[in-house]
Amino acid sequence: MESVVDLALLGLLAVTAFGVLHLRNLVAVVMLMGIYSFLSAALFVVLDAVDVAFTEVAVGAGVSTILALGTLALVGTRQKRHAKSPVIPLLIVLVTGGMLVYGTYDLPRWGQADNPVHGHVAPEYLEMHVPLAGEEGEVLEVHIPNIVTTVLASYRGYDTLGETTVVFAAMVGVLTLFVGRRRPRRKGGSPADDDGEDGAP
């Protein structure tokens, strides 16, 4: 059953991605990206990644869409009809995709419990019990039943520290781009110089 839902959601994702590529109204593109995020969140629930699913909904479908809409308010919503020939990009994409598909034949089949990915540290994370001091039985080493939270905040806490650093760096970058800017260099086609939507997270 979960395989069927998985296939259906993947099909919808593929159709949405194609729509994103094809449409030239950028507001519609951003809205389709929101739909795409929700579909992928549904897929993550089917794939048992519930934490990833609600992060994707909050950050991917929520924050990203707002940032993109704010940008569109400043840069306009029409994409010019592209004059370039699509042959070379198509060739590059087909060759790359072909090589990647060829590579998948060496991958272990999806969803098997004895895949190599399940063998390394993951079982240890699931079995982190320590004996209860002075008593019978054992308790979790980190007292949280959600293993994803445990790994994120405790065993791999430095990853999260690095992530926070990246978010901070991005925020500083966005602020540097927008604070103290000069007037537009060119006459005509310059947008109103407001500081409302600056894209800061």
């Binding site: 794939l47 399940h118 993951a122 699931l126 293993i147 994803v148």
Partner: peptide
């Protein structure tokens, strides 16, 4: 249980 590590 599914593997928690890729999720993290």
């Amino acid at each position: 249980y599914s593997n928690p590590l890729p999720h993290v």
